[in-house]
């Protein structure tokens, strides 16, 4: 038997053992599937109804230049043109206005009834020269927007805790010391852990996605294959980060703290529950160094905007970068 074949045999053995452990731990296995499904259903119950019946106008200049601003029931927001038009195409706003002293450029979503009403109102109240643009796109409800967040959050928890915490538990119980006394190498052990957890994370995500998508009506216009690729690379990046945390940690309590110190900022800053569009630039900058941000940006682009591989290539490249650095650090620093 060649050296590579022997190495593969040992890796497969530890991979199989880890899978058995996970599948027989019915409580953890069930929770990994049940928890995200419960959250999805709870949010669907709360947020899947129609949007509030208030008109929203987004302006790229100051609001007091508009006659529309005097009407009650119209919420005026300010945003950059590109962002505003993106929101218009998702019907998160009903009208976009770019006004100067002499003329007004405006855009409506041709699928939006609210947009049509606002256009009539605008034309009847403004004396400036009006120039019309239009976009299309179905309405994005909160449930549509938050589903990628929940799927991403599930990938994060499953990957980070499923590897980070488990490896520290193995070390604390002396199991790693027992493995050290066999021909199994560090690299073989780590790769087996990565593949086993990746399989679990991706399969669980697919089950949660397919199950909830069958029962609930939420938006998914992009390629399922691309979404799978995002789950794979996202899961891989999180797993390797988890391994890097666990590579020398000896106490489960300390591992707990370290993992929490990583997951909490990601939950807050990566856009799981709410958009960071209106947040300060430095917050958005910090968010860009978190792997969950890139998982969610890519997943939302695919699910909501039918983005292609090229559109999300930067996000995927960042996830690959996290995976490579995490794996290198883990292999170099790992202690049995």
């Amino acid at each position: 038997m060649s050296r590579v074949a022997r190495s593969l045999k040992r890796m497969m053995a530890i991979f199989h053992a880890r899978n058995l452990e996970y599948l027989r731990d019915r409580a953890s296995f069930g929770w990994n599937l049940v928890f995200p499904v419960l959250i999805v259903f709870a949010l669907a119950l709360v947020f899947s109804g129609p949007q509030k019946s208030i008109f929203t106008v987004t302006v790229t200049t100051h609001a007091n230049q508009l006659e529309l601003a005097q009407f009650p029931g119209i919420d005026i927001q300010i945003a950059e043109r590109e962002k505003a038009l993106e929101r218009l195409s998702r019907q998160q706003t009903d009208l976009v206005i770019e006004a100067s002293e002499k003329e007004i450029n405006y855009w409506i979503n041709q699928n939006s009834a609210a947009g049509a009403i606002l256009e009539k109102l605008l034309r009847s109240t403004e004396t400036r020269t009006l120039s019309r643009g239009q976009t299309d796109g179905a309405a994005i409800r909160y449930i549509d927007w938050v589903i990628p967040g929940i799927l991403g959050m599930n990938v994060m928890y499953s990957a980070l805790w499923g590897v980070g915490y488990v490896v520290v538990r193995y070390r604390q119980s002396g199991y790693l010391r027992r493995l050290k006394a066999t021909p199994l190498t560090k690299f073989e052990f780590l790769i087996a852990q990565v593949i086993s957890r990746l399989l679990v994370t991706v399969v669980a995500s697919c089950i949660v996605f397919a199950g909830t998508h069958l029962l609930l009506d939420y938006k998914m216009v992009g390629s399922p294959g691309l979404l799978l690729l995002i789950a794979l690379l996202g899961g891989l990046s999180m797993i390797t980060v988890g391994l890097a945390i666990a590579c020398r940690t000896e106490s489960k309590e300390f591992a707990d703290g370290l993992l929490n110190s990583i997951t909490f900022p990601m939950l807050l800053l990566s856009g799981v529950w709410f958009s960071l569009d209106g947040s300060p630039a430095w917050v958005q900058g910090v968010a860009q160094i978190l792997p969950l941000t890139h998982i969610l940006q890519a997943a939302r682009a695919v699910m909501l905007d039918n983005a292609g591989l090229l559109d999300i290539s930067l996000n995927l490249a960042v996830l690959v970068g996290f995976s490579v650095v995490g794996m290198l650090l883990s292999t170099r620093l790992f202690k049995w």
Partner: peptide, 9 residues
């Protein structure tokens, strides 16, 4: 070993 844990389950 004196005290070896094995993999759970």
């Amino acid at each position: 070993f004196q005290a070896t844990a094995l993999q759970d389950f």
